[in-house]
Design a protein around this nucleic acid. Structure first.
Length: 560
RNA sequence: GCGCCCGUAGCUCAGUUGGAUAGAGUGUCGGCCUCCGAAGCCGAAGGUCAGAGGUUCAAAUCCUCUCGGGCGCGCCA
């Protein structure tokens, strides 16, 4: 519809130009939905934009454009308002069409094929297997997965990736902790490793190792050797055990990855070495104080960065760059990294490293979505400690306490770049103040009406409803149809701007529209035409709520 | 000190990427169940969009500065 209106105006402008009424040729004409229904359905500010170059008053120009505008069956009337906006009021038939579109496209409604076939990768969570996932990972999981689903609706071929370090210093600390536990030590003992982990799970890992358990994670399977001195075996088992723990939480969150990537593979496959060599030949590397540096300041960084330490080891910066080279070589047009904002300093660095390689990677590649910190409150007080992890609140704590639906929704309902206060009491409450239940309730209510229909011995005749759309004259019906029509636009905006909260916000609006309508009108009325028309409408609303919640990983229950 | 993010109703936050009279929820106050589910609906009250300049037909939105909060600033990851 936006496209149609834009074309009509462009035609009008061209006509005026030919008639020498307008000195400028066509510019890009943008059509917006109005904020206020009194201003019609769509508006164009073109007269305001062109007023200066046309050297006419905005309202006069708007008048001229309106008179020249080709007619369309979709448009009932056009008005000029305010400082010179052109407001379009759609014909009722244009509204009614959206109901049929939703009903016929069903779960596909709202999707676009614009990006068909283009490959996109989104990396998120990427937690090292040294402990349970914390609430920050939870936000990352919810945001990353919803973005993946949203981008898929726009036709992108999306791959979800999880990157982790299975062999570095942190893993060494993990191994040492489990080893110490196997020796009978506890975190309270003086001999406990200084950088060791102190959560309860260390004991669980040690116990499982001793009994020779076999653990199966999504990306690996290991059977414990039960030998308390075999540190490689302990390490492999501990990593697998914690990966399984993380997978357990991720599954409970309905998050699945297509690919797990090991940092160690960058070394074993020589990719780190290749990257260093390439950076040296490109001439951006230099030696200083016994270390090898990269002149990242050439590419916007505020200081140069060490690649190879004076002790011969690499800093994390280099495998990061090598990893992204690998992503590039795998052919992803777009790569999005979803991380906590505490990693924001790596953005410039990684991009600088990739530019220094000179292998044709665009300057803004990869893209980043950085979510701000999460704090958890209960009873108005900040919650900090989890017994399970020893120090931080885990994702599992949250899911166990408030459930998957509320947890996922709460994580995506705010802008990612705002700090998030996760109020456990609010998320738990199955009452008026919980936005998740509000939306789900709207869905369940529609299902309930459909059940009542059967109990009354009636059936839903879609065709009869279609023949009686003209009876849908209530204000609330009008508003719901507009909301339904907006859904594809919301998906497109949320995917384009990488902002899932737009969808969460929209679903709340749609649910509100339904609740208001529900209270104001009876659906199961005597008159069958009106009844079927209303059933068509609320069935379409139900479909869109389902589609939208699905993208946020939230269930759409038929009964609550 | 430098960099990034944030600052909107008492509280938690939206705000269609510069548009028309700033919006929800919650909290407060007042109404609505003989009626498809009251986990709901309707109404009232509540604002110097942190502050000051600037850009323009138009600024919560863009630019500069100030104040306040968060996160980073390692030859750690």
């Amino acid at each position: 519809m936006k496209l149609l209106l834009s074309q009509l105006i462009t035609e009008a402008l061209a006509t005026l130009h030919r008639a020498e009424q307008l000195p400028v040729t066509a510019t890009e004409v943008r059509i917006e939905r109005t904020r206020d229904r009194a201003h019609g359905d769509f508006a164009s500010n073109i007269a305001l934009v062109l007023a200066k170059t046309a050297r006419r008053k905005p309202r006069d120009l708007a008048e001229l454009i309106c008179q020249t505008l080709p007619t369309s069956a979709q448009i009932e009337r056009v008005e000029i308002a305010g400082p010179g906006f052109i407001n379009f009021f759609l014909a009722p038939a244009a509204y009614h069409a959206v109901i049929d579109t939703v009903l016929s496209q069903a779960e596909h409604y709202g999707r676009s094929t614009a990006g068909t076939g283009r490959k996109l990768q989104i990396e998120f969570v990427s937690a090292n297997p040294t402990g349970p996932l914390h609430v920050g990972h939870g936000r990352g999981a919810a945001v990353g997965d919803s973005l993946a689903r949203l981008l898929a609706t726009q036709g992108w071929q999306v791959s979800r990736e999880f990157y982790y370090n299975d062999a570095g210093q942190q893993i060494h600390n993990l191994t040492a902790s489990v080893h110490a536990r196997l020796q009978g030590l506890t975190p309270e003992d003086g001999a406990w490793p200084v950088d060791g982990y102190r959560g309860e799970y260390i004991s669980d890992v040690a116990a499982a190792y001793q009994t020779g358990e076999t653990v199966v994670a999504d990306d690996r399977q290991v059977t414990a050797q039960a030998d308390p001195t075999a540190s490689d075996a302990i390490r492999d088992f501990a990593v697998a055990w914690l990966r399984r723990e993380q997978d357990h939480d991720l599954h409970a969150f309905d998050v699945r990855f297509d690919h797990y990537f090991l940092e160690s593979s960058l070394y074993t496959q020589g990719k780190v070495e290749d990257t260093v060599a390439r950076l040296i030949t490109q001439g951006f590397a230099f030696e200083h104080d016994g270390a090898l540096w990269l002149r990242t300041t050439e590419f916007g960084d505020d200081k140069d960065r060490v690649m190879r330490k004076s002790d011969g080891g690499y800093t994390y910066f280099l495998p990061d760059v090598a990893y992204h080279v690998d992503k590039w070589q795998r052919g992803f047009q777009r790569v999005i990294n979803e991380q906590g904002a505490d990693h924001h300093s790596t953005v410039t660095r990684v991009r600088a490293g990739l530019q220094a390689l000179g292998i044709g990677i665009p300057p803004g590649w990869p893209e980043y979505v950085l979510h701000q910190m999460v704090t958890v409150t209960r009873g108005g007080e900040e919650v900090k400690i989890s017994k399970r992890a020893g120090s931080y609140v885990t994702l599992r704590d949250l899911i166990d306490e408030v459930g998957r639906d509320a947890t996922r929704f709460f994580f995506v309902m705010r802008k990612v770049d705002s700090q998030l206060v996760f109020d456990i009491d609010l998320a738990r409450s199955q009452s008026l103040d919980n936005p998740v239940y509000y939306i789900q309730y709207a869905h369940a209510r529609i299902c309930s009406v459909q059940r009542q229909l059967g109990e009354k011995g009636l059936s839903h005749d879609i065709a009869d409803g279609q023949a009686h759309y003209s009876t849908l004259t209530a204000e609330h019906e009008d508003q719901l149809m507009v909301l339904l029509a907006r859904y594809p636009e919301v998906l497109q905006a949320a995917a384009e701007q990488l902002e899932p909260q737009l969808l969460a916000q929209y679903l709340r609006d749609l649910a509100q529209g339904l609740h208001t309508y529900y209270t104001a009108q009876q659906f199961l009325v005597e008159a069958s035409g009106l009844r079927n028309a209303r059933l068509n409408l609320i069935t379409a609303v139900r479909q869109v709520i389902r589609n939208g919640l699905e993208l946020l990983g939230v269930s759409a229950p038929e009964v609550m």
